[in-house]
Design a protein around this nucleic acid. Sequence first.
RNA 1: GCGGAUGUGGCGAAAUUGGUAGACGCACUAGACUUAGGAUCUAGCGCCGCGAGGCAUGGGGGUUCGAGUCCCUCCAUCCGCACCA
Length: 938
Amino acid sequence: MNRGLNTFVDLSKIALKMAEYNFSGIQQRWQKYWEENNIYKVDIDPDKPKYYVLDMFPYPSGAGLHVGHPLGYIATDILSRFKRLKGYNVLHPMGFDSFGLPAEQYAIQTGQHPAVTTEANISRYKEQLRELGFSYDWEREIRTSDPSYYKWTQWIFKKLFNSWYNLDTDRAEHIDNLIKEFSENGNGTVNAHADEDIDLFDQKDWAEFSEKQKAEILQKYRLTYLSETSVNWCPALGTVLSNDEVKDGFSERGGHPVVKKLMPQWSMRITAYADRLLSGLDTIDWPEPIKEMQRNWIGKSVGAEMSFQVDGHDADIKVFTTRIDTIYGVTFLVLAPESELVKKITTEDKRSEVDAYVTEAVNRSERERMSDVKHVTGAFTGAYAINPFNQERVPIWIADYVLAGYGTGAVMAVPSGDQRDYDFAKHFNLPITPVYDNMNIEEAADPTKEGKMINSGVLNGLGYKDATEKAITYLIENKMGERKINFRLRDAIFGRQRYWGEPFPVYFKEGVPELIDDSKLPVVLPEVDKYLPTEDGEPPLARAEDWKYEGEYDYEWTTMPGWAGSSWYFFRYMDPANQETFASREALKYWKSVDLYTGGSEHATGHLLYSRFWTKFLYDLGYIEVEEYADKLINQGMIQGRSNFAYRVNGENKYVSKGLRSQFETTPIHVDVNIVKDDVMDIDAFRKFRPDAVQAEFLLEDGKYHCGWEVEKMSKSKYNVVNPDDLVQKYGADTLRMYEMFLGPIEQSKPWNTNGIEGVFKFLKRLHTLFFNNGKVSISDEAPSKKELKIIHGLLKKIEEDVTSLSLNTSVSSFMIAVNEFTSLKCNKREILQPLVIAIAPFAPYLAEELWHVLGNEGSVVMATYPEFDERYLQEDIFEYPVSVNGKMRVKIKYPIDKPIPEIQRDVLENDVIKKWLDGKSPKKIIVVPQRIINLVV
RNA sequence: GCGGAUGUGGCGAAAUUGGUAGACGCACUAGACUUAGGAUCUAGCGCCGCGAGGCAUGGGGGUUCGAGUCCCUCCAUCCGCACCA
C-alpha cells in the first residue's frame, strides 16, 4: 500500500516537473543544437534580400560585460532574428576592437604580454555573449589585433599614403597622377587639398629636385603624411593624444595633464573630406544630435579672406571674416600672440610690453587659457594697418582670444558687431563704429544683419546681402582677397608612442619614409622586453631587437591609434577570411552597407567621423560601392549604476532603515546591490558583506531594512555592478533579454534596476504553462475563436511595427497582454500558439525553440517564416463613438462602422441620455469626427 | 555663452501622433488556496472627497469643440561644444 502511494506521488512530481519552466535545461539543449547545426552561419545568397545589422564591436576589458553592454546587442539580435524570419539574408557579426591602452598599461604593470590578457578577456566576453543567445555567425569574428586583420589596416594606410586630394575632380587620386603632372607642368596647374605653404615650381624645377626634396614636397599632398606638428603630449602616459581624447587639458583616460609639444607625427588629411563629410550627413538616417555634433566639429564657415597692408612695412596681414559687410566698422586688428609677424612689426617703445605678453600667453597652458575666457587681455604692437576699403589706419593689437590655429590667426575687429571685439574695445578704450542704421551698441555688440548700412563708404544704404556681395566683388576685382570657406576640423594625428597597436608599413631610408611592399605585409608587431618608452624617449617598438627592414632600415616606431582598426571593420565582416584583399568585390557588392548600426553616442566625433572618412576614401579609389557605410544609426543609452545605501549611526555599530535616518546622525554606506531586492536589504548577507557589521544592531521599519539609492557610475568600488551572468543563472537568458528591452526605449540613458525582472520571468513561465495541462503537453487542434484570432493578429501586427521601429519595450508589454488573455481564455490551440511562438522567437529564442518542438515541429524555429497578420480579424464592425457635450466627454454610443455620419448626428439628438443633458436646448453645432468622437456644442 | 535632448503616479514607463491620460510591469493593500510562502490565483491601487464630483502630464499663457501631444514664455535636469572671427 505504502509503496504504491509513494510511486503515485513520485509520478505526479515527475509529470509536474516536465511542465516546469526549466530555463537552464532549455538553454543548454538549444545552444548545443544551434552550434552543432551551424544555424547562424551566413553566406551570400543572391536569391534573398540582404540585411546587415551591426553593433559597435567592444573593447574586451578585463572586467567582462556588465548588464549595460548587452542592451544594444539584444536589440540588434531581435531585429536580426526578426528579419531572418521575414526572409532576409541577415549579416549579424561580432568581433573585438582588441588593440588599446588598458591591456598595455596592465602589461607595463605586470609584464604580461597584451596579447595574452586580450585573448583571455575575449574568451570571457565570448562566453558571456554565447549565454545570452545571440545569433552571431562566429565564423566571421574579427579582431583588430590579429595580424590577418591589421594586414589590411596597413594596406589601407599605404593607399592613403599613395593618394592626394584633387579638388578639380573632388576626390582622392593616385599620387602617380600628381607626380606625372609635376614632371609635365610643375604644380601651378594643380588644384589640390594640401599644405598651405607649398612654393610654386615648374617642370624644370621638379626635374632638378633631389629625391629627398621630391619626397618632402609630396608629403605636403599625401592623404597621410609625416610632419612637425604641435600635438597633445601626455607625459604621464608617454603618448600623444587626439583632440577628442583630451578634456579641458587633461587626458580622458586617467586624467593626466596634457601639454602642447612639437613632434614629427603621422597625420591623416581628413580636412580634405570636410565638405563631403558635412554634406554626406544629409544622406544618412543618423540621430540628429550626432549629426549636429559632427557638423559643429567640422565647423564650416563661409566668408572671405583679405589682406591689410601694415603701414610702413613690406608685410600684410591676412584675415578671415564671415562678415565682410562690416568692413568699415573695423577699428583695429588683432593677431594671435604666436603670430610670426608680431616680432617684425612691433615698435621699439612697445617691444618690452609685447614680449612680456607673448611670453605669458604662450606659456599659459591650454587649461588656463580656456578657464579664463572672461578676462580681457592684450597688448598694442605700436604698428598700424591700412583698411583697403577706406585707407584708414587702424592699430594692430595682439590678444590670446585670437587662436593661431584657426583661419589666418588674425582677425579684423568690428567691435560694433562682435561681442569679443566689443569687450576688447571697451577695455582698451578703442573706437566703436556702428555700420547699420538700427544698431544698438549702448550695452553690447549688435550682430544684426537687418537695416541699411551707414558709415560704410561705397556700401552705404545697402542691406546685408547686397553689401556682402558688393564688398566681395570689390575684393576680388582689386586682388585684395577672395571668397573663402574655413573649417574648424583639423587633420587627425595618426601616431601613438605605444606598443599595443598596428605597426606602420613604413621604413626610413635616409630619413625619408618608404612603404613596405604588399607582399611583405603584415608588418607584425615585434616582441619587446618592456612596454615602456626607451631611455631616449623613443616609443616601445624601438626596443625590439634585430627589428630592421631588410636588416638595414629602421621601421616606423610609433603605432597606429585606436581608431585605425575600427575605421573599416564593417567591410571586413563581409568577407573576413579573405587573404587576397580586404573584402572581395562580390561580398562588397552584395552586402553594400550596414542597414542598422548601433552604439554609444560618445563616438560621435571620433570613430563615427573617422570611419566615414575612410569609407569615402575607399569609395574614391573604387574599392567599395557606397560613400556612407551605415544607412541608419541608433544610439543606445548608457546604463548607469544604481547604488544602494545603508545608514550607519555615527559612532555606533548600528544601522537604521532609510525612513528612520532623520532621527539620527548617519553616514551612508554602499551596500552591494546584489544583496538588496526592491531596496530591501538582506541583513544576514550584509553581515557577511561587511564583517565589521557582524555584531551590528539594525533598526527596521515594518520588519524590513529599507535602503536608499542613488544614480552613480557603474563601478566595482560602488558595489553597484550587476553582472549579466548572475541574472542568466537566476532567471535565464530569455528573461534577461526581454527585461532589458522592457526597461524602456533603447535610446534612453537610465540607471540599471533589477526590480521588476520578476514580472518578465513570471510572464515567460505563464507562456510556457500555456502548452501544458496537469503536467502534460496539451495542444488542441480545435479552430480558434474570433476573439482569439483577433488577439493573435493584433499582436503580430503590433510586433512587426514595433520591431521595425525598434520600440521593443512596448512589444514586451504586448506579449504580456496577449499571453494573459490566452491564459484567461485557457487557449491551447495550435493555430494560435504556433504564430505566437514564432513571433516571440526573436525576443526569447531559447524558450521559443523549446515550444516550437513542444508543438511538434521539426528543425529550428530560426528557419520558420514570420506569420502574416490578417487585417480582417482586426476590423471593428461596431465603433464606440464617444459623445462630448461642450467639450466634456459624456457618453459612448455604439454604431456600425459604416453608418453614414449625418444619420449618426440625427441619432445622437434622439438618444435619451443626450436629451437629458441637452435639457431641452438644441445644440448650436454637432461635430462628428469620422471614427472618433461626436461633439455637441450647446 | 552656443547647440541638442528630456521633464507624465511611490518607481520603470504607455498613449493609435490632436480624441476617455497613466496600457504593461514593479512596489504596495486586501482576499483565496496553503503546514508555510520569497509559489500561484482574484481584486484594488494618480491626488482631494463619504458621495455626486473636482483637480491632475515641470510652471504660466495661447490656439482648438477637445492639448501630455501644436504655438509662445519661463524653470529644472542631462549631454555635447566652448574665445572658430
